[in-house]
Design a protein around this nucleic acid. Structure first.
Lengths: 147, 147
DNA sequence: TTTCTGTGGTTGCGTGTGCAACTGCTGTGC
DNA sequence: GCACAGCAGTTGCACACGCAACCACAGAAA
């Protein structure tokens, strides 16, 4: 049933399992602390990274790998929580800028310690000294699958 | 905002992105070929691996990392497609065995070529010669996150 | 200008998911 | 034997997702 290299297939299966277990574990930790989902952090962090802390809905969707539909509704929820605000884009009247609010920055800071600890406990130890190598490999995966 | 090693954090973010892009790419290929989702393959394959091609709903859920709820309904769909059959478990009248049917084996064989090609195109090239190393690292991630 | 193609964002619909609550059964403790 | 804690599996509910269809606007073409 397997013609491709067994180690490659094994790596793929391990990849799927590792992702499922690691994200579940971290989301469990976050929920236990009464904090929102991992994906909320990713969204807020994507905005925080920007010089003006703003991104169009579209760009945000690409940034956290979500469909435009899902992002539209996701922004609804995060906006209802007060962490972001939709603003008209002066350069393009079709578009909307999603702007990080102060409450959003607070949320980011509240989530990070638990998230960080999750990464440290569930992910980092397995890397040993190969973090850089693993990073480059996984970035290549993103790259070649994005097309 | 980041106290942990930047390479570790970078590896984590690359991990999330790689997973999102790779599974999307492969699911897109499968859908284009009129084939079911990647997760269907995983379910069928988990059964195929067993000596008697049977697993309890519970075990199946652990195998493909899904909640019992989700698995119950997932089995509904796959059973409706004729790829598996629910059978009473003679050893425990609470439990049900999910048995792979011949049509399920056919489905497995139909899906595999497209799936394989997806792995070869979107995942394997990035590994270079490190498939074994990556596999072991990711298996350790599963391990330490499963608790 | 006017038209036409295309893009940004949202919404209706069908579908997938988890949690909590439930049924039916197991197995231990008494 | 009989109660009772606990597990296997399913279901009601609330919520998240993608696709296709839609509206408003942009930008090139004529």
């Amino acid at each position: 049933m397997a013609r491709i290299d067994d180690e490659v297939l094994g790596a793929w299966r391990a990849f799927l399992n590792a992702h499922a277990h690691a994200t579940r574990a971290i989301n469990r930790d976050l929920a236990a602390a009464g904090l929102p989902d991992l994906s909320w952090y990713d969204l807020l962090w994507a905005l925080y990274r920007q010089p003006d802390r703003r991104l169009r809905v579209n760009e945000l969707a690409r940034e956290v790998v979500l469909s435009a539909t899902a992002m539209s509704r996701f922004v609804d929820r995060v906006e209802a929580a007060g962490y972001v605000r939709r603003e008209p884009d002066p350069d393009d009247r079709r578009a909307l800028k999603v702007a990080l609010t102060d409450a959003g920055v607070d949320a980011l800071r509240a989530i990070w310690p638990v998230y960080e600890r999750g990464i440290e406990r569930h992910f980092a130890p397995a890397l040993g000294g190969s973090a850089g190598r693993v990073r480059r490999i996984l970035e290549r995966v993103s790259e070649s699958a994005r097309g």
